[in-house]
Amino acid sequence: MSDSSTTNASTFGRLVINKIPEVTSNPLGDNRIELVVPANKIRDVVTLIDEEIQDVLPESMFGVDLENDQYELIYIFWSYTSRLLLQLRVSLEGEKPEIESTCDIFPGLEWHEREVREMFGIEVKNHPDPRLLLLPDELDGAYPMRKRFQTDRSRLNETGITPPKPRPEPGGDSQ
């Protein structure tokens, strides 16, 4: 890598906010920054990251189920020369929320997006390969990482102590 210019977290945060004013930022300290991105702007922000930071590595991308049809998507990028950790947070809502695919910019995110789709039911638009990644075919559409998916807890009854209270069940039918 010939480019040795380093990027500071707060400088980069300001740069993104200047170009896309809908984005807000929270510093996480220690050259880490979190950007809260609206769902329709995610492609713009990821493109900007790709253009501005030379050696950026798509580290991870995953969903979080906040219950009551609220979801969060978190993208994590890491740049080793500037030692900068970027965390993008996208809030989503609805029974089957949608997000634009970013895997043509970072191919490494392709499998993470497939996983989010099968585990949380977050539809990834324009994904080149929307098959199941980890799950067997019979769990297609069951979205097991959602909180409302009930797992088999019968083994706990075998211990002989009183079983712990069941999780509070949010809206929606149990699978």
Binding site: R155, L156, E158, T159, G160, I161
Partner: peptide, 17 residues
């Protein structure tokens, strides 16, 4: 005291009080 039963991550212990 059932501490061993509670901590077991794979539910391998059963107790009969």
């Amino acid at each position: 005291c059932a501490q061993c039963v509670r901590i077991c991550p794979v539910v391998a212990i059963r107790m009969d009080k």
